[in-house]
Amino acid sequence: MLLPYAKPPPGDADHALLPPRSVPARSRTGEGFYMVRLLKSALVLFIGLHALFYALQNIANIDAAHGALAYVLSGADHAAYPATMFFKTGNPLLAWAALAVVLAGELAVAFFGIKGGWDLFAARSGTAEEFHAAKRSGVIAAGLALLVWFGFFMSFGAAFFQMWQTPLGTGSMEGAFMYAMASAITMLFVSATDD
């Protein structure tokens, strides 16, 4: 028995019995939607490049980076709040350990950001589910960036060691705030929707 079907529009009789053809995500959603995917890919890549540039500049200026951390950890020149409930240290080994943690964090952000940007670019024409799954490394990069710049610099540096009291510390704290916020906004923009 034949099932009834709607009469095809005039001139379209040849296509009425063909199965619907697969339409790539870009065509199905429009060029603007595709552009948003490219923007998300680029922003995640920039999180990685940003961290990579800082890590490489810190390595190129390793003695100055160590000196800056030693200065912050020592509590030198803290006139506004000279006392602390915690500790200050002039131990150069602790400054090297802190620098190693910062560099490891920056390099981890760089790795996941660059990988995340590539993963999103590679999935740009995929389904919503495929593109959403490709966000994993990018979200890890943005989360690690928040950990490095909010956690290390703002929580430990600015609050614990009160680096806001010196021009060197204030510059680092303000920079860390900008980097943390840029990473947070990028993470929200990238992960707010499936695409």
Rank of each mutant, 00 (worst) to 15 (best):
P4E: 11
S155K: 00
L107E: 03
Y34P: 06
A16D: 13
Y179H: 11
V190T: 03
P167T: 04
L147K: 08
M35T: 14
R26Y: 13
T193S: 11
A98P: 01
P19S: 13
F189I: 04
L69E: 04
N91A: 10
V109E: 00
H66V: 01
K135W: 13
L69S: 02
Q162V: 02
A159D: 05
G90N: 07
A184F: 10
F160I: 02
A16W: 10
L39T: 08
A79C: 04
T89V: 09
A108C: 09
A68Y: 09
A141R: 05
V190I: 08
V190C: 05
A158D: 08
Y81M: 15
V109T: 00
R28T: 01
L43S: 07
S27L: 15
A182P: 05
L43I: 04
L56W: 14
I59F: 08
F152M: 11
D194C: 00
L45F: 15
H132Q: 11
M181L: 15
A184Y: 02
E174F: 14
Y81K: 09
H15E: 07
L168P: 00
W96Q: 10
D195F: 02
A95S: 05
R37G: 02
A80E: 13
A128S: 05
E106K: 03
L93I: 07
L49Y: 07
T127G: 04
A76K: 09
A6R: 12
I62E: 09
E106I: 00
R37L: 07
F131L: 06
G116L: 06
S155H: 03
L103P: 02
A16F: 14
T186Q: 13
Q57P: 00
T166I: 06
L188C: 04
H66N: 10
V36W: 08
F156D: 03
L18V: 02
A133G: 07
D195P: 01
S22N: 09
Q165K: 08
N58Y: 11
N58F: 14
R136I: 07
E129C: 02
M173V: 05
H78T: 07
P19R: 08
L94V: 07
L69D: 01
L49H: 00
M173P: 02
R21G: 03
S191R: 06
A122R: 15
H78L: 07
A79S: 12
A158G: 02
R124E: 09
A133Y: 11
A80P: 01
L3K: 11
I62R: 01
S191H: 06
